[in-house]
Design a binder for these strands. Structure first.
Lengths: 220, 220
DNA sequence: ACAAAAGTGTTTTTGTTACACCCATGT
DNA sequence: ACATGGGTGTAACAAAAACACTTTTGT
């Protein structure tokens, strides 16, 4: 038996990193913080002594970006001792989803350290953060198939076309309109508000809302 | 902004817990360690300063149970500050699979602190370990549907009936023999060895092997 | 009248489920 | 000869995919 010393507590740090997704203009974007000239990082940081992991992730997101009230889910824990030089940093990675409409846009624009970047064209990221984003994107895409997670990107009321665009943006492929609508309505997760969206030179669209907003349901 | 102190390193401990599954006599069992009279726990323990998380999980499994060379996968990280009294213990939970044939049975029998318990009838477990077992079982069961993970329970060569029994044991339901064989063979993950299993008063069964042992493949 | 997106059903294809008998062996 | 599990195909059904035209609005 090989005996190993436990982590020297003075060297062990526990942190969280959050991949916050949002969709802007048919692009799937991630919120990044500028760390240096051409170096970006995910929001996150150390876990407080008396807070749980989810709480730490949400707190850093709020403190660093002003974004609050998101859907949050644990992704994976990264603990390679060589992740970070000189110190042992174990990171519990999360991903989070927020509708573009709920973002504090003014606050974000004032802060040049914070920016949205398209997942398909990320700038250089620190450490293993690019890997974390990729993993989060995969997880998100596969959850579309068997859950109602996409509703987390939607505002209080929305059109079916807008929801379809969300799916297409995340999956990176176009979907058949009629099959999509059949599928979504069969899920029984949305209902009509009665209202109509009048915008543009075309027929107004019915508005829908989530029947259980905030609740993610799994299919079959 | 609420400011919270980072974890006092003297109080933060990082550990791993492992749910090791194996199948014995059509029962899905978990390996447990006796902690006290009527109190059991999962194998696991602190993460070494220079080892990665997977390594720590495997090492504790080896040191505490003698079991080596298993399939291992990270499950979830539990970090509720009230998990453990008096100290902050964050635990990275894993689950592991091993064929009954690969177990050091003599070594295990000699150690009265170690025992296999059926998942469906667990003794009282310490902390949140029962929750961890349940989560691991769910994850395992759902992976059957879209991966070749069940092969990790099989010895070098095996019959299709034996593989079907593994599926049935994990899922807790009986499967149709013909449909099962069609599905498995369509996965293209096993091939005939040419050998036959002669056992019992009945027709011998064809033996198969995994085409890529150790490799888990995903379907579609 | 035209441009632009909303809305709507049916057919085809594919995959899933249900189901029953003969075969090879040991006793 | 019989008991035991091994091995095999097809028909019914359900789910997914392919597919095109009409409607409503603003300009």
């Amino acid at each position: 038996m090989k005996i190993m010393a436990p982590v020297d507590p003075a060297l062990l740090a526990l942190s969280t990193d959050v991949v916050l997704f949002s969709i802007h203009a048919e692009r799937l974007d991630v919120l990044l913080l500028k760390q240096a000239a051409r170096q970006w990082q995910l929001p996150g940081g150390e876990v407080g002594a008396c807070e749980d992991l989810d709480g730490a992730a949400l707190r850093h997101l709020r403190e660093q970006t002003g974004v609050d009230d998101v859907y949050l889910e644990q992704l994976y824990t990264f603990g390679d001792p060589r992740r970070v030089d000189c110190q042992r940093v174990v990171s519990v990675a999360y991903y989070a989803l927020v509708p573009a409409e709920r973002l504090p846009l003014d606050e974000l624009r004032k802060n040049p350290q914070v920016d949205w970047c398209p997942v398909s064209d990320l700038p250089p990221l620190t450490l293993d953060h690019a890997q974390i984003v990729t993993l989060a994107h995969q997880r998100l895409a596969s959850k579309l198939a068997y859950s109602t997670i996409a509703l987390q990107f939607m505002p209080a009321s929305f059109t079916l076309s807008a929801l379809q665009t969300v799916y297409e943006t995340i999956l990176g492929e176009v979907l058949d309109k009629r099959n999509f609508r059949k599928r979504i309505l069969a899920m029984n997760c949305i209902e009509t508000t009665g209202g109509m969206a009048r915008e543009g030179n075309h027929r107004p669209a019915r508005l829908y809302r989530a029947t259980h907003p905030g609740r993610i349901e799994f299919l079959k």
